[in-house]
Write a protein that binds this DNA or RNA. Structure first.
Lengths: 182, 182
DNA sequence: GTTAGTATACCGGCCGGACGGTCTATTAAC
DNA sequence: GTTAATAGACCGTCCGGCCGGTATACTAAC
């Protein structure tokens, strides 16, 4: 991975702030300090707070889409491919919970300006369509995706996220649904 | 227990603010104005913002628990009872759900002070235990619950929430899982 | 039944600090 | 020397929280 651009460094800092201190502590001063830069330098790259948060969301969407496509491309079976790719991208196996980076973008957006998640909504429409045309029962594909989202939220907010063997069986079960073997 | 109604009026106002304007617009001034009262009067009931948000979370937990127990009590079959109760409480049949309270309290807590959702975490541990001892495969119970959460999030954030017949089939499918007929 | 005392509920001005955003100066790169 | 990038002082506003004061209601002494 090449040296991250200044933009990415700043976005990383913003995400760390949200993760460690909460979305309402996402301020220019805090982000600049976290990134060891100045407010002016930060403002040069993101002219407003909405712009900063929008960039966080944009990066999250790109990252998720990339992972989704990679999983789908590596999947040999066509049946339920996109559903499996979605589940694999969203639901972390164990230990390492869902990546805080994507969570930060989402939390920052809903706290700061709910309209900023519109790009995510657009992508969701596409992802759902892909899963609906995946060759398996649409409601099975949907259950697998929604359960993956639920697991991600449970990890993120600490809502008794399943661990160990139960988690493994859960993810295996989601895979079953995505294979049309519900 | 009969809480003083004024408290509930103020909490209702706070929820409306979060729902209509976003979590970062939840201010004392805004809540007081929304409730047609004064900032001082509001501060009399909630000495700090954390206290206000904590009360929102507390009310949400009580409400959810009440609905959960009501559904469970009305369920004739013991097998998968708590799983079904959880799904029924969380996943709205169609259209808008009565979960403004959950959404507002959760968003406010996450934005304001993530530590304030601790009571919710505690309850989740209990809910999960109930579902795990529900007489059906634990991973099936878990999938149903997580999918219900995922559906709720999709509704809340507008992530292509399923509607109409697909949604009906989805909820029916969750019911199947909760009956042990996965 | 009036008076004094006390508790509850509420009002709204005010302060200090934080925040989003602007502006000008400075440095780095080529 | 021009441009990209960074620095940081500064401004107006907003926000959380405090505080002095008011109104009502209840109690009890006399």
């Amino acid at each position: 991975m090449a040296r991250p651009s200044r933009r990415d460094v700043l976005l990383d800092a913003a995400e760390r702030i949200v993760r460690d201190k909460g979305a309402n502590h996402l301020t220019f001063d805090a982000v600049a300090a976290e990134a060891n830069t100045s407010k002016g330098g930060l403002l040069y790259h993101f002219a407003s707070k909405d712009e900063l948060v929008a960039a966080m969301v944009e990066r999250l969407v790109a990252s998720f889409d990339g992972s989704l496509n990679a999983h789908a491309a590596a999947d040999k079976s066509a049946t339920g491919r996109w559903t499996r790719a979605y589940v694999a991208t969203t639901a972390a196996p164990d230990g390492r919970s869902a990546d805080d980076m994507t969570a930060s973008a989402l939390l920052a957006a809903v706290a700061c300006n709910p309209g900023l998640i519109e790009p995510l909504r657009d992508r969701y429409r596409v992802w759902r369509e892909a899963a609906a045309a995946d060759g398996i029962a649409p409601e099975d594909a949907l259950i697998a995706m929604l359960a993956a989202d639920g697991l991600w939220i449970a990890d993120l907010l600490g809502f008794a996220p399943p661990t160990g063997e139960l988690r493994a069986r859960l993810i295996e079960r989601m895979g079953q649904l995505a294979r049309g073997a519900g």
